Simulated assay, not measured.
Amino acid sequence: MSKEDRNSTSISAGESHSQSHFRYSTVLGYFQQSAPSQDANGKDSTIDHVQSNFGLIDRSYDTDAEFDPTRSKSQWERFQHWVRTLNARQSQSDSRIIYKVLFLGRHGQGEHNVAEAYYGTDAWDCYWSLREGNESSTWADARLTETGRAQARATHEAWRTEIDRGMLLPESFYVSPLNRCLETAWITFHGLVGDAFSPVVMENLRETIGIHTCDRRSNRSAIQSEYPSYRIEDGFAEDDPLWDPELRESDSARDVRLKSALDAIFSHDAAEFVSVTAHSGAITSILSVVGHRPFRLATGAVLPVFVRAEVVPGPEPPRNIDPPTRVPECKGDPLKAGDGKIMARVTEIPN
């Protein structure tokens, strides 16, 4: 696919989202992670993307006889040809259906993950997440830990292994503006796509917004200075316009925001294989939007999802959006959380 094709728009020129909208679904039967869960809650993280070809199922496709008559092609090569064939057929029939494979990568372990595990979720949500950090760690716009960097390097090697098996790298890359994702994407893909790794930094891919300082992004200038090859989307403000120190975004509001991010990708990027480096909450919302079963993704892991998008006439159906929530009341003394130790000092919230 040419660069011009990848940058083409999927919705006809002059057609706005008030006249049509995307309806998403997950195409089953291609990745193990999309299969119905054996767990009663529909959640598991037992499929190791590093050890299982990213979960790609060993199967045949209708195009195998023509594309691979000698049976010499790899599973990835045959699958990628099948996806391209599906889209080519839709294009030839003037269909309004688009297929993409999304590689949803969660950032590696961050300083905030360690802090929440140490203090416990109750103390974290009511007190510690409001702070910039403690005496030993800073988690505002949280950075990766050394463990998180090692997780990203493991995923880098997993990609390299799959490339050796015939897998193509994604044609487009998108990343949340929070630092833990910016660094995860860099460690994961730099060197695989050459020295000019330049993902698109997209505001709407960020984690649940509000209250937690780990989810308040740095300003645009700082992001561009640290990652000069990254392309920041148009309209990206210098300072964080979304984070609120008193209100936290509801899950249903986050779903709407992540659908908007998907809509932008499907509308303006014709790439058929797309990488998205984001967060647990953001990926949870993407899975909800595309009708995928819940899947608990470990830090540093990757979840591929085969998505079908249909352009449906008419405006987006109305959604019930829950209001934001405020800081919960502490159930105990948060200063005594964490193995019973009292932390002597915290870095206070800036004015």
Score class of each variant (00 low, 15 high):
residue 11 I to R: 14
residue 15 E to R: 07
residue 18 S to Y: 11
residue 19 Q to N: 12
residue 23 R to S: 10
residue 23 R to Q: 15
residue 32 Q to R: 04
residue 32 Q to W: 00
residue 36 P to Q: 05
residue 41 N to K: 11
residue 51 Q to P: 00
residue 57 I to F: 00
residue 59 R to D: 00
residue 65 A to S: 08
residue 65 A to H: 07
residue 78 R to Q: 06
residue 81 H to P: 02
residue 86 L to W: 09
residue 99 Y to K: 13
residue 100 K to D: 02
residue 101 V to F: 05
residue 101 V to A: 07
residue 104 L to P: 14
residue 105 G to K: 07
residue 106 R to T: 10
residue 107 H to Y: 12
residue 109 Q to C: 08
residue 109 Q to R: 11
residue 114 V to W: 09
residue 118 Y to R: 15
residue 125 D to Q: 09
residue 125 D to G: 06
residue 129 S to Q: 05
residue 130 L to T: 14
residue 131 R to Q: 15
residue 132 E to M: 12
residue 132 E to D: 10
residue 138 T to D: 12
residue 142 A to F: 04
residue 145 T to A: 08
residue 150 A to K: 12
residue 151 Q to R: 05
residue 156 H to E: 01
residue 157 E to W: 13
residue 158 A to P: 05
residue 170 P to I: 06
residue 172 S to Y: 04
residue 173 F to A: 13
residue 173 F to R: 08
residue 178 L to G: 12
residue 180 R to M: 09
residue 181 C to T: 15
residue 181 C to A: 07
residue 184 T to Q: 06
residue 186 W to V: 05
residue 194 G to T: 09
residue 207 E to C: 04
residue 209 I to H: 03
residue 209 I to V: 15
residue 209 I to K: 08
residue 213 T to E: 02
residue 215 D to V: 14
residue 219 N to H: 13
residue 230 Y to Q: 06
residue 232 I to K: 10
residue 232 I to A: 12
residue 233 E to Q: 12
residue 240 D to M: 11
residue 245 P to W: 03
residue 250 S to F: 10
residue 254 R to G: 15
residue 270 A to F: 00
residue 273 F to S: 00
residue 276 V to F: 03
residue 285 S to T: 13
residue 286 I to T: 14
residue 287 L to H: 01
residue 287 L to Q: 11
residue 287 L to M: 04
residue 292 H to Q: 06
residue 306 F to N: 02
residue 307 V to P: 00
residue 310 E to N: 02
residue 311 V to P: 02
residue 312 V to L: 00
residue 314 G to M: 07
residue 315 P to N: 06
residue 321 I to N: 10
residue 331 K to E: 11
residue 346 V to H: 14
